[in-house]
């Protein structure tokens, strides 16, 4: 019915720039896949299951790094989840508006502290504390998976708190009022009305925070010890917590990447680390975002 309208310059420019951004990201993915292809061809699935990484012998197995990454992220979440969600519950359910904003400002500032500063604090303070606290387990140094996990946990706190607060605030005030009107205490209202309705948001917050924990490099790099091929005797053993380890990101951020460029297979293995990290984090982020978008089902 309508004749074809010439698209405006604004539209064309906007669309072009958007496509540039989208294709740059796709290009990034493509480069990772292409550059890591040799190691997939030569190692296949054993890339994930091999417990040894000796580039001089052309052995590329990332199982110990996956283990280190998971342990660090798990410790971080274990520390940050109760504290972050607890803070969010306290701020959104018990504090009057002004005090709540004050807490949020403090948390935003905490979120703004650069990771290298956290790393510095970790090196100078946390590492010594952990070394002293772990004396009964006879650690070699304060650089352990536990140290890295605790440090990342502190870094996750603001993320978790902000996202959880959003989730809790999205439960309508009328629901809380109705529960209070029935004679429930503020605690019962929080536990029985607000938290059950906010759970998608809270779960999403956990997943997003988990994604951040996997990808954090600088702070982990400085305190994790960067010890290759640390595979625990038992997956359930807590002993490796008190030992140095290596994570995907600390390996990738280390000086080895400069050596790797000369050897195609080694280089491919390094890029593959990046690809694995990207896929892991993107999956968690995507899942977290989608779950968070589910609005609480309330009138």
């Amino acid at each position: 019915m309508s004749r074809w309208k010439r698209p405006s310059v604004t539209l064309v420019v906007c669309a072009l720039l958007t496509l540039v951004a989208v294709f740059a990201f796709m290009g990034m993915l493509a480069v990772f896949v292409a550059q890591s292809a040799p190691v997939w061809r030569s190692e296949g699935w054993s890339f994930f299951t091999q417990k040894q990484w000796f580039y001089r012998q052309q052995l590329f197995g990332i199982a110990p790094m996956l283990y280190g990454t998971v342990v660090v992220a798990a410790v971080a979440l274990l520390v940050a989840t109760p504290a972050g969600i607890g803070t969010a519950v306290f701020a959104s359910e018990f504090l009057p508006r002004r005090a709540r904003l004050a807490v949020k400002v403090a948390i935003e500032l905490l979120a703004g502290i650069p990771s290298v500063v956290y790393g510095l604090l970790g090196i100078v303070l946390l590492r010594d504390w952990i070394y002293r606290a772990l004396q009964p387990f006879d650690p070699l140094s304060g650089d352990t998976l536990l140290t890295a996990g605790l440090l990342v946990g502190v870094m996750l706190l603001p993320t978790l708190m902000t996202l959880s607060d959003d989730a809790l605030r999205s439960v309508p005030a009328s629901q809380r009022l109705a529960a209070r009107g029935l004679g429930l205490t503020a605690t019962e209202t929080a536990l029985r009305v607000t938290l059950p309705q906010a759970w998608p948001g809270l779960l999403g917050a956990l997943l997003l925070a988990g994604g951040r924990a996997l990808g954090e490099m600088i702070a982990v790099f400085l305190v994790v010890g960067r010890q290759d091929n640390q595979w625990p005797e038992s997956l359930l053993s807590l002993r490796p917590m008190a030992e140095a380890g290596q994570t995907l990101s600390s390996k990738l951020g280390g000086p080895e990447i400069n050596i790797a460029y000369g050897d195609p297979l080694h280089w491919a293995a390094m890029v593959a680390l990046g690809l694995v990290l990207l896929v892991l984090v993107a999956t968690l982020t995507l899942a977290g975002t989608l779950i968070r978008r589910r609005k609480p089902h309330a009138p």
Binding site: S174, L177, A178, A179, R180, G181, G183, L184, P299
Partner: peptide, 19 residues
């Protein structure tokens, strides 16, 4: 106040049923 509210109930303008 919580025990009081159990003895003096309230009905709001908009029904707020729980999901």
């Amino acid at each position: 106040a919580d025990a009081l509210r159990a003895k003096i109930g309230i009905l709001f303008q908009q029904p707020a049923v729980f999901p």
